[in-house]
């Protein structure tokens, strides 16, 4: 895939990605690119392999085959070297689905953030990091009292805001949101969506959104990929994919969203004809 100029250079390039767990093929021949500053949504039902793609991108799973390039550098294989791992951390971060298990339960959340600030901003003085911590808390709408709490003393929404702040500590160029909004109630979801939009405007960050919530996808993602049984069945601009779906599976997905004039029978008919 040769590219003309540095402007259209994709920030994420995935080619022929495959992951096999024992006998089960979780991800099969997945290829896509993401341009810097845009947002890609990967949608699909549970078990479609979208989370496995996210885990391979973040280096938590090793691909069986295929290549992953992020910020122009290969990361298809895990590395042990500390410096290289820190560099990868500054390129891409991930926010997981469940805010209840994503934070160390025995640590005050502020201490957890400070530890990572010390890791990624080691050349800055302590006072700067302390100040930055307060800035980040403010950014996600939390205060000093929240920072002095353990995760068990915070609500799900507060915890998820902490995990988002944590993902931003290393000032990464890409953040994967792996169903990160699914566990929040609708009003909180809207708040966080606005927050994510603001952060993108401010920093030009790239989002990869793993979701099955098409409303969220429509609001945040410019491009959309539809996965089924480990393969990409449809991809393109989000508006096109969601408004005029081509693949029967995407149609079913879109028809399953309740909206004005929505008839459950239609969705069911779609399922039968699929």
């Amino acid at each position: 895939m040769p590219d003309a100029g540095p402007k259209s250079e994709p920030i994420v390039e995935v080619a022929g990605l495959r992951k096999v767990f024992g006998e089960h093929v979780a991800v099969d021949d997945v290829s896509f690119t993401v341009e810097a500053g845009s947002s890609l949504a990967i949608v699909g039902e549970s078990g479609s392999g979208k989370t496995t793609v996210a885990r391979m991108l973040s280096g938590l799973e090793r691909p069986t085959a295929g290549t992953i390039r992020v910020c122009g550098r290969d990361r298809s294989r895990p590395v042990r070297r500390a410096a290289e791992r820190r560099r990868r951390a500054r390129e891409l971060q991930i926010v997981f689905q469940d805010p209840y298990t994503s934070l160390d339960p025995r640590e005050e959340v502020g201490d957890g953030l400070l530890e990572l600030l010390a890791l990624h901003q080691s050349e800055r003085p302590r006072e700067w990091r302390q100040e930055r911590l307060m800035e980040m808390a403010e950014l996600v709408g939390l205060d000093e009292r929240h920072l002095r709490s353990r995760p068990g003393e915070l609500s799900g929404g507060q915890r998820q805001r902490i995990t988002i702040a944590r993902a931003l500590v290393s000032e990464p160029r890409i953040v994967i949101l792996d169903e990160s909004l699914a566990s929040l109630d609708v009003s909180l979801q809207a708040q966080i969506l606005n927050l994510l939009g603001d952060i993108r405007e401010e920093t030009g960050i790239t989002y990869i959104l793993i979701s099955h919530d098409l409303a969220v996808v429509l609001q945040l993602a410019t491009e959309t990929l539809v996965m089924k049984d480990g393969r990409i069945v449809e991809s393109g601009r989000t508006v096109d994919v969601l408004h005029s779906p081509e693949h029967p599976y995407t149609k079913l997905l879109c028809d399953s969203v309740p909206r004005r004039g929505w008839k459950p029978e239609r969705a069911l008919q779609g399922a039968e004809s699929n």
Binding site: A82, R85, D104, L119
Partner: peptide, 26 residues
């Protein structure tokens, strides 16, 4: 296998640090 450990790995924290400061206390 819990996500908080995975998060710390993605953050680039060393294995020894994760074990000493996070895994062991838990």
């Amino acid at each position: 296998s819990s996500p908080y450990i995975a998060s710390l790995l993605v953050q680039g924290l060393s294995s020894l640090t994760i074990c000493r400061r996070h895994l062991f206390p838990n």
